Computed example of a mutant assay.
Amino acid sequence: MLDKPDVPRTGFFALPDHGVITLEGRDALAFAQAQCMSDVAALADHGWQWSGWLTPKGRVIALFAVLRLGAESAWLLVPDGDTESLAARLRGLVFRSKVKVEARPDLFVAGAFAAPAAARDATLSGDANGGVELDLGDGTLPRCLRVSNVAVEPDPAAQARWHAFDLAHGWLRLPPSQTEQWTPQQLSLDRLKAYSVKKGCYPGQEIVARTHFLGKAKRGLVLFGAPLAPAAGSEVLADGKALGTVACSGDAAGTGLPAAALALAVLPLERDDSATLEADGQSLAVLPLHDGLSR
C-alpha cells in the first residue's frame, strides 16, 4: 500500500511531461481502432482505457490512454514523448480516412492527489469544451488527472510523486532510448488491460497474438528498489552475469516503499531469485508491483 501522509491531497499541479493528441472526424474511432493496441471499439462514450502504438514487429512506440469523447472524437493522453512527432507519424497513416490528427499544446494536463468530482474508474467526466477528468487512483490512494485549456503552476515534488506512483503500479514511463525495444508482453501490460489479442488488425497484432496464444512470452516486468535510480537501458546483473534490462526508473518519493529510487526492468519469467542483483552500480531489491490501475 502506498504511504498516504506524505502525499498532498488537494490542489492541481502541472504535469508538463504529459501531452494530448486529438483525433477528430467521422473516422476518428475507426482510425484509433486500427492503430491502437487496445480495443477502442469496445469503449462507450466517456470511457477510457490504457493503450499504446506498436511497430509492425510488435514493439512499443508509445504508451498512452485512449479517451472516447464522442462518436467522432478520441484523445490520446501521452505521458511521455514528443506529441508533435507522434501526431505527424500517425497523420502519415490517415490516407483517405476522414480524421484530423493534431497535437494539442493548447491543452494542459494537471494532476492532484484527490478524488475526482465525478470520474470513476474507466469513466471520465467533462467534455472537450470544458475539460475532462480521469480517475487515476488505485482504490486506496486517490488521484485525479485533468485535461483543460487552463495551465496551473508546477510542483516538482508532487510531479515526482506522481511519477513514482506510476512506476510502483507498473505503468511505464518510457524514455526515448526505450521506445521500439519491447513487446507489450515483455512490459507486462496485460496487468493494465492495455492491449488486445482478439480484436482486428493493428500494427504488431500478429506478433502480439502469436506470442499470447502460443505461450511464448519469456520475459516480464519486475519492480526494484535501489539507493539511486539506475539509468534506463542499464543491464541488470545477477551475480555479475547479464540477466535483463532497466526500462525506466525514478525517485520513490511519497510511495512509502523501502527504497530511495524505483526501477522497472524486463527480466526472464524463470530466474533464480536468490541471486544478488544490481544495475548501473546500484544494488537492487525486488518489490511487489502494486495493483489498482487496471481499467
Rank of each mutant, 00 (worst) to 15 (best):
V150D: 14
P227V: 02
H169W: 11
G220L: 00
A242T: 15
E153M: 12
K218Q: 11
G256V: 05
T183N: 03
Q181N: 12
A265E: 05
L243D: 08
D166Y: 09
F224H: 08
G240H: 12
L257F: 07
E270C: 09
A247V: 07
E153A: 12
R191T: 03
L192T: 03
E270M: 12
S249W: 05
A157Y: 10
P175V: 04
L172E: 15
V197G: 01
V152I: 05
R219N: 13
V150T: 14
K218E: 04
D155F: 01
P175I: 00
V246L: 01
E180S: 15
C248H: 07
D251F: 14
R173Q: 12
V266A: 11
L187H: 08
H163K: 14
N149L: 09
H169G: 05
Q178V: 00
P258E: 07
V236K: 11
K241C: 13
Q159T: 13
K218T: 07
S177K: 12
I207K: 07
P176Q: 06
P176N: 01
E206T: 10
A151I: 07
E270Q: 13
D190C: 08
P203Q: 02
Q186Y: 04
K193M: 13
L243S: 10
L145I: 15
V147E: 08
G244P: 02
L267Q: 11
L257S: 06
A259V: 05
D166C: 11
P154N: 00
G200Q: 04
A168T: 08
R146S: 01
P175D: 04
A231R: 10
F165S: 14
L237F: 12
P184E: 02
D166Q: 13
D155H: 05
L269P: 09
L228W: 13
P230E: 03
V222M: 09
K198T: 11
S177V: 12
S177E: 15
A158T: 02
Y202L: 10
T255S: 08
E235I: 15
L145S: 07
G254L: 06
V246D: 07
G254E: 02
R210L: 04
P203Y: 02
G233A: 03
G215Q: 02
A226T: 06
C248Y: 07
T183M: 00
E270P: 07
R191L: 11
G250W: 01
F224S: 09
A157C: 11
A260D: 10
T245S: 14
K198R: 11
A238R: 10
K199W: 09
A217D: 03
V236Q: 10
L267Y: 07
N149Q: 14
V246W: 06
R191G: 03
W162H: 14
G254N: 05
L264Q: 10
S249F: 02
G240K: 10
K218Y: 01
G215F: 01
A160M: 08
K216L: 15
S234H: 00
K193G: 11
L214Y: 08
P176E: 05
A217L: 01
K218H: 02
W171F: 15
K241S: 14
W162M: 14
A209I: 04
A229I: 03
R173F: 13
V222P: 03
I207P: 02
L167T: 06
V236L: 05
